[in-house]
Design a protein around this nucleic acid. Structure first.
Lengths: 366, 366
DNA sequence: TTGTAAGCGTTATCAT
DNA sequence: ATGATAACGCTTACAA
């Protein structure tokens, strides 16, 4: 009932041409006469042939037309972040010349399964043990690493061993890997300076997590800040306000900002300004301020970071640092295209622009 | 400088075994002695061989280990919707037995590019013309269609022609395609009944778009509702409130709900309850109510739909219909697994559960 | 412009 | 438990 699927050879035979000619008609990689094209296409239609099998084509070509996007966490977490989504958009655009599609590769550490009995027998290290199987067996031409901490080294090792070209966004993967970066520190410095010019002295910093897994709360100069982005933005703020109290959130969301904001605003020495490390956190702080009956920016100034559209913040325009998220993705995509073309891709650092919104103003009179 | 990449044949030779034996060591598809395994692995390490080339393996196996996820729009739009993200999570879980990765296939209609001169010459229809090239050339084993309107028929045709197993979430793709559905109408009916029991008479419906591209605004019984989800939920509400005024949003977001909410609450005959078709819209309506100085639920009752966590709605627990979004995805994944195993997958309809939150209460005294 | 030929690297089958 | 062999379906030199 279901006969063997037609191949390009069948189509060629039916059309009375050679397989290579038929191939050329489908790929367009060489000229073919209109008449030949017509015959081949007609034969294809007659046989229900829908075009070259991508699996066979990719073996022969050595390219699959797929670019992997590796996240340092769950899909859910990644897509909760508007910046990540914008970057994905950019990556898709950037790799467009390749006509490539994006393969989602979440890189969650699988709990290290105890290996088989023969373990101490073998001196051979199974480097793939702590790496999702898709990472080793997905037919990707290149990979973009997103939001990568030091933690994900094993996956990176696998990719390098496979000689898959890799570019990393916001992270350090060693000297050979092109990086797409942001001027986090300088940018945050600008926002802090702005507040200082407005006269703010009592400023609190609301940061991203300083360490994976650490609980929400205050931290001091003694606490190590292990997350790069957090550290960079923190440094920029600290350059202006060296001794500002700092409070670390556990994630970037409005609700998290609200919870953190409540605590920050509850203290005896209430700040006149809060520098939040993301727009979502800033939005939450604004909510917290509203709860306390504080007006923004009259009683409290709030700055964010990212420049994303925060859904539900309609009434305000956030004073924030707008990062070119889509362009970061686009640059990563372009880097991939370059590497695949045999050129070597340079690292890029993007610059945030400071946007004066409506959420930061003069320091309130004492 | 860069010599040819080692193949499994090289590894086999180095290890003194046959290629098929080496293959077995890597795939685990047949038993191999510990000693053989050790030798092969050692040879692989020595040669820098990182495992079978996925492209070759997928040609031979006839499987790529990739499941496509097709969105009826841009990635950006898709990932803006928390329900979609939850579903993606579920799909990933559902296809886990396949050890497959997910390929993103946005299905935006490319502006029909005028074809070459020889056009009227040819009677052969190029069915792929209005379909993204990735759809025709991506090595996917199966596809999950998400949020699909009638619009995307061409892509579906391509997939069927390629004989790629397809399952569709919230949409109708014809009798042969397994569907993952929700009891939208019945569920919405429950929420409406609840409001009626609370005594509400003046109720306004805030719906999803009734037609792609239509502007925000009021609509009546005469207006055709072309979007399935919108129609189903609307019908459920209309069964209880046949003549309730209805207002269509243009998307599902808090800000959109806020804008719509303002207009809904501004009228002369202000409703005592709003039935919103999504949680995000409901959240926006609540914001709008707050703006007018209306208390929820004392002055205005609001119900949502979806049961997602709305970031920034901390103070309320939405009265809503909780849909099993993750399970929908999981079911789609399971259907894919079944179809790939040669079984045929049944359609599934999931049931929403009504959650009594804090946003709907008794009708305020006149 | 079209045809011929030679793989691309792997794995399933069937012996042994 | 291991080995020999034959595809999997296509594309690209190269020749005509």
């Amino acid at each position: 009932m279901s006969e063997r699927r037609a191949t390009i050879t069948d189509v060629a035979r039916e059309a009375g041409v050679s397989p290579s000619t038929a191939s050329v008609v489908f790929s367009g990689n060489a000229p073919a006469s209109a008449e030949t094209r017509r015959r081949v296409l007609a034969a294809a239609e007659a046989l229900g042939y829908t075009g070259p099998d991508p699996r066979a084509a990719s073996l022969r070509r050595g390219r699959s037309g797929i670019v992997g996007v590796v996240f340092g966490g769950s899909l859910r977490a990644a897509f909760h972040d508007p910046v990540t989504i914008a970057m994905m958009d950019g990556i898709a655009e950037g790799v467009a010349p390749l006509r490539a599609a994006l393969l989602l590769l979440p890189d969650e550490t699988s709990s290290a399964a105890p290996a088989s009995a023969a373990d101490d027998d073998s001196s051979v290290t199974d480097v793939t043990a702590e790496v999702p199987s898709t990472m080793t067996s997905a037919p990707i031409d290149a990979a973009v690493l997103v939001g990568f901490g030091q933690t994900r080294q094993p996956s990176l090792d696998v990719l390098r061993a496979r000689r898959v070209p890799v570019v990393i966004i916001e992270g350090d993967a060693g000297p050979d890997i092109p990086r797409i970066e942001l001027d986090n520190s300088a940018a945050q410095h600008r926002a802090a300076s702005y507040l200082r010019e407005l006269g703010h002295e009592r400023v609190t910093l609301l940061t991203l997590p300083i360490r994976p897994g650490r609980a929400r709360g205050w931290f001091g100069h003694a606490d190590a800040v292990e997350v790069d982005v957090t550290a960079a933005r923190l440094a920029g703020a600290r350059a202006v306000y060296p001794d500002a109290p700092a409070y670390a959130a556990v994630t970037s969301s409005i609700d998290e900002g609200l919870i953190s904001g409540r605590e920050i605003l509850a203290g005896p020495d209430r700040p006149t300004a809060v520098i939040a490390q993301t727009d979502l956190l800033a939005a939450g702080v604004i909510r917290a301020a509203e709860e306390c009956g504080l007006r923004v920016p009259e009683d409290l100034s709030v700055t964010g970071f990212d420049g994303v559209e925060v859904d539900g913040l309609d009434a305000y325009e956030l004073t924030t640092l707008v990062q070119p998220a889509v362009e970061k993705g686009r640059a990563a995509g372009a880097a991939v295209v370059a590497m695949l073309a045999g050129e070597d891709a340079a690292s890029v650092t993007f610059t945030c622009s400071f946007r004066t919104g409506t959420t930061a103003g003069a320091v309130p009179p004492a």
